[in-house]
Lab assay of single mutants.
Amino acid sequence: MSIQHFRVALIPFFAAFCLPVFAHPETLVKVKDAEDQLGARVGYIELDLNSGKILESFRPEERFPMMSTFKVLLCGAVLSRVDAGQEQLGRRIHYSQNDLVEYSPVTEKHLTDGMTVRELCSAAITMSDNTAANLLLTTIGGPKELTAFLHNMGDHVTRLDRWEPELNEAIPNDERDTTMPAAMATTLRKLLTGELLTLASRQQLIDWMEADKVAGPLLRSALPAGWFIADKSGAGERGSRGIIAALGPDGKPSRIVVIYTTGSQATMDERNRQIAEIGASLIKHW
């Protein structure tokens, strides 16, 4: 067993022997301040990774656009098919120029040779490549099948209805392509620590998230040296922004954090800054 596999296998073990965790309302004060600064709703939840206990939450059962955070769930569904012998990570998928959609920095470079399922998941999570996500959605049967996968996990809230990039439209009061912070946090925890996926697939999923290259201005910008984070960000229309993450000190994750916002007129930089400040408060009061 590799060191990384050992780390993920012992996530519940280490967490069980940690000192009790206590909620700190100071972080919620910052979440509410972010709402004021952005002029928009902000949803927040913080779960203990081992027990699933909610440590703090704000608007945990209000719907927010998922945006690209759905790509972690998508690759979880792909990995479940791999575990069941219905898919192979090494299978190569070929596609054409007509398949390319807006923001496809990886797939646009491989029109000639195609990409493997493993490479597509890596591109979808680490670079948020939209064509990679659409190609992977095709392998599982489309958005409705991802929703069905989530329902089978016990998540009857999260739903995907459309493809990239239309799913980022974020129309107010439109339930399409949305989740709730509580539902997303619980589902992410199941994917990373539950028995739904094999140990190898859980490790692969967290490795992809740990290698995320496009979430630097968010929670990662607030992390002290030595902290662990595996995350996936999302951005959408109407001032929408979000991030889902597993993080913790001492090089291992111990909490799940989900943050979503929508309806702001603020710039992307300002949305990023507010999420980073929430992260800084979380870490300060850990």
Rank of each mutant, 00 (worst) to 15 (best):
G154V: 04
E270W: 15
L150A: 14
T178F: 03
V117H: 03
D36K: 15
R92K: 14
E87V: 10
N98H: 08
G141I: 05
L28E: 13
P60A: 13
T116W: 03
S254L: 08
L218C: 05
L38F: 06
A245G: 12
V42R: 01
E237P: 10
K109I: 06
R255S: 04
A182G: 12
R220N: 02
R162C: 14
H285K: 10
A276V: 13
D113N: 12
R176F: 10
C121A: 11
T138K: 15
N173I: 10
Q203T: 06
L196W: 11
I243K: 00
L146M: 06
S122G: 13
D207V: 10
E237I: 07
H156K: 10
R162W: 02
K71L: 00
H110E: 09
R162M: 05
R189S: 06
S264K: 14
A222C: 06
K71A: 00
G76Y: 05
N168R: 04
G239F: 02
L150E: 03
G236E: 03
G43I: 01
A246S: 08
M67Y: 01
S57W: 10
T267W: 12
R176M: 08
P105G: 05
L146P: 01
L79K: 00
A170K: 13
Y103N: 14
G90P: 12
K144D: 09
D33M: 07
R202G: 10
D231N: 07
S128A: 01
L150R: 02
L137I: 13
V257E: 01
E270A: 15
V29G: 10
E164Y: 02
G279A: 11
T198S: 08
E270D: 15
T138S: 13
S104C: 07
E270N: 14
L49D: 04
A40K: 04
L100G: 04
D161G: 03
T147I: 07
V157S: 10
M209W: 03
K53S: 14
N130E: 01
A222I: 05
R273V: 11
R63N: 15
N50P: 08
T27V: 14
D48Y: 03
L111T: 07
K32N: 11
P224W: 03
T178R: 01
E175P: 12
V29S: 14
W163Y: 13
S281R: 09
I45Q: 14
E237R: 12
D155L: 01
E277N: 06
G141R: 12
K32T: 13
S240I: 02
T126E: 09
A266R: 10
E108S: 15
T267E: 07
A123H: 04
G226L: 07
D177G: 01
S201Q: 15
C121K: 00
A200I: 11
D231M: 04
R238K: 05
K30S: 09
R118V: 10
Q274D: 05
A185S: 07
A170I: 09
E35K: 03
Q204F: 10
E210L: 12
E175M: 12
